[in-house]
Structures are given as C-alpha cells and as structure tokens.
Simulated assay, not measured.
Amino acid sequence: MFKISMTPRFGDIDGLRHVNNNVLGVWFETGRNDIFRFFTPNLSLDYEDWKLILVRTEYDYLGQMFFDGDVEIRTYITKIGNSSFTIGHEAWQDNELKAKGLAVLVHFDFIEQKSVPIPDDIRTKLEEHLIDEADIGKL
C-alpha cells in the first residue's frame, strides 16, 4: 500500500466549505504515481514511453472533508488481470474514511493502439500491493 498526504488548498474548498468533489479525482491520481513508476520508471510523459491508459474510475463519498486538516490518500491494488488491473483508493481525514474509489488501468501500447500483457516483473511488483477486497476500508 502507498500513502501520501494531501493538504487542502483554499481553492479546493467550495461554497459549502468542504473539499469539492472534483478534487478527489486529482488526489487519487496523485496517489497512483508510485504505480505509474512500475511501468515508466522515469515518469516520462513521452508518447512512446507511457504504458497505461485509464478506462474507468468510480468514487463513493462517505463523509465531508474540510480545509482544516491534511487528507491521507491510501492506494493499493485490488485485482490483476492479463493486461488490466484495478487500483483501490481511500481518502482519510481525522482518522475517518471519507471517500473510497477504484480505477481500472490497462497496460497499453499507444503506437500499436492495443492492450498488451503486464510483464511478469511488473506483475510481481503489483502483487506486493494486492489487498483483499474484504479488507478495504479497514486498513
């Protein structure tokens, strides 16, 4: 599991005085950076180097997050397929789970425009962060 801390910015807050729901997607994407490095160690954004494509995201908002405290983003793997894998995310503030979500990514060849199998060495790295779905929200 990977953990990062996000500090809400003034601009992240909406008229209801809580973290706006659109911010969560950005924070969860930031939480995926360590996983991106498995596929592209130098995080090059060159078309020829990038190896992943996002095909699905979903979020559940469980409680409001506010400006006055950091938010811990927890990121882990929930499923590994042949060319795709699912990433789980959690957002915690004040020791409470405030949001959770999933993102499905595909190992993708942008030149050939097709999915490709996840290499064994990367699969092994992903497996090190595999969390049983029954444990989600309890970590």
Rank of each mutant, 00 (worst) to 15 (best):
P119D: 09
Y59G: 04
T57V: 15
D14G: 07
F85R: 00
Y76R: 06
V23F: 05
T86F: 07
S44L: 06
F28A: 00
R56G: 12
L52D: 02
M65R: 03
G101N: 09
Q113S: 09
D121R: 10
I131H: 13
V116A: 13
D94W: 09
D34F: 07
K125W: 13
M65E: 11
D135Q: 15
D68E: 12
I87N: 01
K98W: 10
Q64V: 10
Q113T: 09
F67Y: 13
T86K: 03
D34Q: 07
L62P: 07
L62K: 12
N95W: 12
L130C: 14
P119G: 08
D34E: 11
L130R: 11
H18V: 04
D68V: 07
S115V: 05
L97P: 10
E58V: 06
F36E: 09
V19H: 05
N42P: 11
G15L: 07
G31A: 02
E58G: 09
V116C: 07
N42K: 15
I118C: 08
F28R: 01
L102D: 01
R37L: 05
P117D: 11
R37Y: 06
R74T: 01
T124P: 09
D135W: 14
D46M: 11
L102Q: 05
V19I: 03
V71Q: 02
I80D: 01
E133N: 13
D120A: 13
L43S: 06
E112W: 10
E96P: 08
W27D: 00
G11W: 05
K51F: 10
N95R: 15
E58S: 10
F108Q: 03
F28C: 07
V26F: 06
V26M: 09
Q93S: 04
S84N: 01
A91E: 02
E112D: 13
E72W: 03
E29P: 05
L16Q: 02
I122S: 11
T86Q: 08
I80K: 01
R32Q: 05
I122R: 08
I13W: 05
N33S: 08
M65V: 10
K79M: 00
T40R: 08
R37G: 10
K51N: 14
F10W: 15
N20E: 01
W50Q: 14
G81N: 00
T124V: 13
E127C: 08
D12A: 04
